[in-house]
Simulated scan of single mutants.
Amino acid sequence: MNKKLILLLTAGLMAAQLLGCGNNKQESVEEESAVEISTADSDDNETSSDIVPVSPSQQYDDSEDVYEKAEISCSLPKGFKAYEAEEGMYVHKNYPKDLSTISYVISEGDENITEKSKEEYQTMIEQDFDASYGDTVPVTIEQYDKIRIDGRPGLKIRLQYELKGTVYEQLSYNLFNGDETHILTFTQEEGAGWMDDFEKCGESIHFVATEE
């Protein structure tokens, strides 16, 4: 896996901690009930995407994969809105009191992250933490599921880590789209209470075709 993708993955892990140490002049953000992470129109509905679990014992058939230029669309939890200082970052209206974040990045490259084992993924993240901070940051992966959304293979991952004395919980969707990987990352301080809403947001993910 190329270095760029590794850095994008760990950027999602570290987003809340870095925002918390940044400029706090922006005391709050206006509330918005639903946000689309794409150019698609928002209808604020509760329809779920076709998230299909892939059993470890199931023979994987890549002929079922669908790749075309697209962005993902999903309805964010109530109160989250784009953070003007960081493209692809969403924070709660109570930021910086509530450091929960949502980030969406697209990494170019044809290496399929879903081929990584749980152990390989954990090692990759921990090594990059060490390279970025010069410190050991143990990562505990609680869920590591292969999924398929709208024909694209992906990983749904829940993990926990401690950084600079604070424990963070994270949910991420890493979705492979042929020549790019879409990474949607939800991060909260331990026990912040957003995880159920983050899960519901994940259930609303769809791919929306974009022009070449």
Rank of each mutant, 00 (worst) to 15 (best):
M1D: 10
K4Q: 11
L5P: 00
T10H: 05
M14E: 12
M14C: 08
A16H: 02
L18P: 00
G22V: 05
N23E: 11
V29D: 03
E30G: 11
E31C: 02
S33H: 01
E36M: 01
A40Q: 02
D44S: 02
T47D: 15
D50L: 04
V54T: 07
Y60A: 11
Y60K: 13
D62P: 14
E64P: 00
E64H: 05
E71H: 13
I72W: 06
I72S: 06
S75K: 09
K78S: 15
K78Q: 13
A85G: 15
E86V: 14
K93Y: 09
L99V: 14
L99K: 14
V105A: 07
E108S: 10
E111C: 04
T114D: 03
E120W: 05
Y121A: 03
Q122V: 07
I125W: 03
I125N: 03
F129D: 02
D130S: 06
S132D: 05
G134F: 06
G134D: 07
D135E: 13
T136I: 04
V139Q: 02
Q143N: 13
I147M: 02
R148F: 01
D150E: 12
P153N: 10
G154E: 03
G154V: 05
I157W: 04
L159M: 09
L159G: 06
E162I: 05
L163A: 08
L163W: 08
K164V: 09
G165P: 13
V167C: 10
V167R: 14
V167D: 08
Y168V: 01
E169G: 02
L171K: 06
S172K: 04
E180L: 04
T185S: 14
F186A: 02
F186Q: 04
F186V: 02
Q188E: 15
Q188M: 06
E189R: 15
E190D: 13
E190W: 06
D196Q: 14
D196Y: 07
F198C: 08
F198K: 10
G202Q: 09
E203D: 14
S204D: 08
H206F: 12
H206D: 08
F207C: 13
E211P: 00
